[in-house]
Amino acid sequence: MHYVKAKGIFTSDYGINIYRGCTHGCIYCDSRSEVYRFSHKFEDIEVKENAVGLLKRELIRRKPFMVVTGAMTDPYVPIEKRLQHVRKCLEVIYRYGYGFSCLTKSDLILRDLDLLKRINEKSKVVVQIKLTTADDDLCKIIEPNVCPTSRRAEVLKRLDENGIPSVVWLSPIMPYINDNEDNVNSILDFCIDANIKGVLNLDMGFSLRKGNREYFYGKLDEHFPGLRQRYVEEFGERNFIYSANNRKLKKIIENRCRKHGMLYRQEDIIEYMHEFPCASVQSKLM
């Protein structure tokens, strides 16, 4: 871990990244790719020491909207338990009447359930949880330093019990590892049981770009002997690889989401997550 003093807090699409880098150890993480130009070791997390102050400065002068985090780095990396930068940012978001949406794999988000409930009562919260495999043993291999899928399913149920809407990212789907019907159906069972708002799956596949590709292949050699060669022969140096089961698995998601009233179209879910309830918030702030 190391500290930097950032010049700004928002990305071009009004997302925030309090941390840069990650220690979850997920073997597929696209954030390792060279295109992101990390100047430090990926596991040496960069902490924006002035993030809370920058966020406050920006929110004071803007009209409320959904503040989003988690696109590049999980906001609930283990050091957050000690530093509490995300929690301090949530306090600022609540104070100024903004909404909040984040993407995480960590059950540490339940620590902030009190603040999430207060923000949701005042404006809006959407928690996005990534589920990759329903098999906890496989999860320990592909996402080794974060809570297993069964625990994330419990997190989804806790959120639902407290009136916090959630979206599940059913991804990434890796050929010959988790691209099968049993896995997808089991994850959808978790989603239905937790009454989630929608299931987001861009495609049954994942990004495999330079920088990430080398790390991923090393993990294949370690945990899935022989699979690296199959990837090399079948996918070459493609930046995105698709499962041969793409169409069939996406149809399963569509059919089951329709049946249970869950969103599944990418554009509908993105619109829902970013839509800010202006009228209701204004009345609560008056």
Rank of each mutant, 00 (worst) to 15 (best):
H2D: 11
H2K: 15
H2L: 14
Y3G: 05
A6T: 06
K7E: 14
F10L: 07
S12V: 14
S12N: 14
D13S: 15
G15H: 12
I16W: 04
I16T: 04
N17I: 06
R20V: 09
H24S: 06
D30G: 05
V35F: 13
V35R: 15
S39Q: 14
K41C: 11
E43K: 10
D44H: 11
E46K: 14
V47H: 04
K48N: 05
K48Y: 07
G53H: 08
E58N: 07
E58K: 11
R61C: 13
R62M: 13
P64V: 01
F65W: 09
G70D: 04
A71E: 15
P75V: 03
P78I: 10
I79F: 10
V86I: 12
R87N: 07
K88C: 02
K88W: 06
C89W: 01
L90C: 02
V92N: 04
I93S: 02
Y98E: 01
G99A: 00
G99V: 01
L103Y: 07
L103K: 04
S106Q: 05
D112W: 02
L113K: 02
K117S: 04
R118K: 12
I119E: 01
E121D: 09
K122S: 03
S123F: 03
S123M: 02
K124Q: 00
K124F: 02
K124T: 00
I129R: 00
L131W: 05
T133F: 01
A134F: 13
D135H: 03
D136R: 05
D137Q: 15
C139N: 15
K140W: 10
I141L: 12
T149Q: 02
A153V: 09
V155P: 07
K157P: 09
L159E: 01
D160V: 09
E161A: 10
I164R: 04
V167Y: 04
V167K: 04
V168G: 03
L170A: 09
I173C: 05
M174W: 08
Y176K: 08
D179Y: 11
E181R: 08
V184Y: 02
I187E: 00
C191R: 01
N195P: 13
I196G: 03
K197R: 15
G198M: 08
N201R: 05
N201H: 09
M204Y: 09
S207C: 14
R209H: 10
K210L: 07
R213E: 04
Y215P: 01
F216V: 04
K219Q: 11
K219R: 11
D221T: 05
D221A: 05
F224G: 04
G226F: 09
Y231T: 01
Y231P: 00
V232N: 00
V232Q: 11
G236I: 02
G236D: 02
N239M: 10
N239E: 15
F240P: 04
F240I: 13
F240C: 07
F240E: 10
F240K: 15
A244T: 11
R247F: 14
K250N: 12
I252C: 03
E254C: 07
N255V: 11
N255I: 08
N255M: 15
R258H: 08
H260N: 13
Y264F: 13
Q266H: 14
E267P: 02
D268I: 08
I269E: 05
I270Y: 14
E271Q: 11
M273S: 13
E275I: 06
P277Q: 02
S280H: 09
K284N: 12
L285A: 06
